[in-house]
Design a protein around this nucleic acid. Structure first.
Lengths: 209, 209
DNA sequence: GTAAATCTGTAACGGTCGATACAGATATTC
DNA sequence: GAATATCTGTATCGACCGTTACAGATTTAC
């Protein structure tokens, strides 16, 4: 066992508290005093455990990823590409407009910071979002191979479309949109799945304007 | 004429310089020294002219609105609802991924700040985005009256869908997406317009899941 | 001309930022 | 027990934040 005085707080609980603050106020908007107050610890404890504010954020983001991994795994396991798309968008719509009060509105990967004094955090978040997009793209490529999606369809563009929708839902959610309103949008976005998957062909012919 | 020493800088040019800083770094990420440096003036000049950092931001946002008004007017003047949607999304896709280097990527109303230490600026920006959404909604309501859109279609949901897309495009743009990639997404989003406009009926019957 | 008004640059304000020095407390190791 | 290691709270660090006091410069009003 490790020597010295043991830690007086639960690391996971502290991360959850910090997550809420970053989620609601963004990386730059979350001050150290906001964080330590929410986490119920003093600055030296925070620094001993996480190294820096950025280190804390990275740990929070990792934990966030772990939580969302369950969701993504379920989504990708849907039997068809159409059902993947539906599960993803409806799931995101419900999640970002969470009415339970357990989470702030939106998504940490968006609300955490799109811009800032330097690009470190925005870039980090962009990489995490790109990773999710890549998961969807690979799932759609697999659907093309299995014949679920036509060969002409553009897996990358479809994944990007879903990601744009998801990010847009985050923006709308933090502006106060209700779960009902966001799910209406998700339904609209999913309505033309048949036309969408055929879009790859058109794109190849005439390209985007 | 006004008495006293005249101002040594052009107010409009200074606002444009400040706009770029807020656009790229967000409200909180833009420090006073960033702003005064970009504007080429000293703090007292800034405060005499704009009152405060928030006052400067409001003036910048007003100027931004003026610039975008030309775009929105053109979009709303399109003959059909389908063409309005196309003009809007393709226009936004081109704008937020601006390759000319004249503007930072994304949109001031999104990049300016989704979150923060307090909600003043995020709320202000949300109101401005909601205003644009309302313009689209009113245009679609008008299209319903003129028979361009079926009576069953949901003008509010269609406008919200376009807004979600536009905001998502901003997020994707600031993460480095190219104009080509964003326009591919816009094309996909517009592909199922006929199915989308009929969605209002479905929604009324079974509601969003 | 003189007075009044406004803008300018310098220089600094109090406050808060993220981050730490330090000493006391609490554990393991021997 | 003594030695060592780690965590804790207090109190504070220098840096930068948004903001402003002040004196000099430049204009109009009379």
């Amino acid at each position: 066992m490790r020597t010295g005085r043991p830690r007086c707080f639960c690391k996971e609980e502290a991360l959850d508290k910090a997550m809420t603050v970053f989620w609601r106020q963004g990386y730059e908007g979350a001050s150290l005093s906001d964080l330590t107050k929410a986490m119920g610890i003093n600055p030296p404890s925070l620094y001993a455990c996480f190294g820096s504010k950025e280190g804390l954020f990275k740990a929070v983001l990792e934990r966030y990823d772990q939580r969302r991994e369950i969701f993504m795994t379920g989504v990708l396991a849907a039997p068809t590409a159409a059902e993947v798309a539906q599960a993803y968008l409806m799931g995101v719509a419900g999640f970002v407009a969470d009415t339970s009060g357990r989470n702030p509105p939106g998504c940490l990967m968006v609300q955490g910071g799109l811009s800032g004094g330097d690009r470190d955090i925005p870039d980090m978040l962009a990489r995490h979002r790109a990773e999710k997009e890549a998961m969807l793209r690979r799932r759609f490529e697999q659907a093309k191979k299995s014949g679920d999606l036509p060969r002409t369809s553009d897996a990358a563009a479809l994944a990007r479309y879903l990601m744009v929708m998801a990010n847009g839902l985050c923006v709308q959610a933090v502006a106060g949109a209700s779960e009902k309103e966001l799910k209406e949008v998700a339904v609209i976005a999913l309505t033309n799945w048949p036309a969408m998957v055929a879009q790859g062909k058109k794109t190849r012919v005439k390209g985007p304007a």
